[in-house]
Amino acid sequence: MTIHYHPSIEMLTDYAAGSLSLTHSMSIATHIEQCQECQQQIRKLTTLGGQLFTQTTTEDANIVDLKASFFDKLREQDRSESMSSTVKEQGRRDQSTDHMTSEETLLSWEQDYQVPKSLRQFVPFGYDKLKWMPLSPSVKIATLCQEEGGAQVALTRIKAGASIPTHTHTGDEITLVLEGAFSDKSGIYRQGDFITRDASHKHKPMVTKDAECICLTVLDAPIEFTGWLTRLFNPIMRRYHPHSNH
């Protein structure tokens, strides 16, 4: 798989450093699951983090007390663990069978779709099991999480050959193609492609005719539809966004 559109080096750096917001980190984590090139980049950026980390130190702190309490805690935990290990063992066995059933369900429902590991917290049973809200006969969205004071993460599912009405963004928007492909006047985007659009951008994405398209989107602020009829959607989009006043 060749991926043509990647996150900026700034975003990758902030992700490796752990300074990027969790919502944006989710889109990076999902991209690097599919992108070898960015995986390599993250590896090096993390090595740099390790190096900067070794250069730090605090001289003033007295760690003797901290150490004593740490070893007490460790002994306490080890003791309670060995006592409950048989119970735990049983629990683990149950958990692993649970896990298998959910994997199997995932496969039987959607033969071709592999939900990225980074999204499984919010998509544990496959895309079909999510609560989808129809925006039009061919477009639906499912909100995965909304951060107070942060962005909104959602999935958009568009039928083959359909298009999303022309819209602009009131904030930055990240789109990551999970399944299928779509195009706009700037290019064609396939699985794994990572596209960033800012508020000035006005576009009309169209899905290719061969298959439906599922995208992960991270929105800083609600999108605004610009066509006269589709402007009717705007109150709905605002209502489903955490920043709205409605």
Binding site: G18, L22, T23, S25, M26, I28, A29, R43, T46, K117, S118, L119, R120, Q121, C145, E147, E148, G149, G150
Partner: peptide, 15 residues
């Protein structure tokens, strides 16, 4: 102040 329900365990896997 901005508590999040996104679990970082899913986002930063072992190097």
């Amino acid at each position: 102040r901005h508590q999040s329900n996104i679990d970082p365990e899913y986002l930063w896997r072992d190097v």
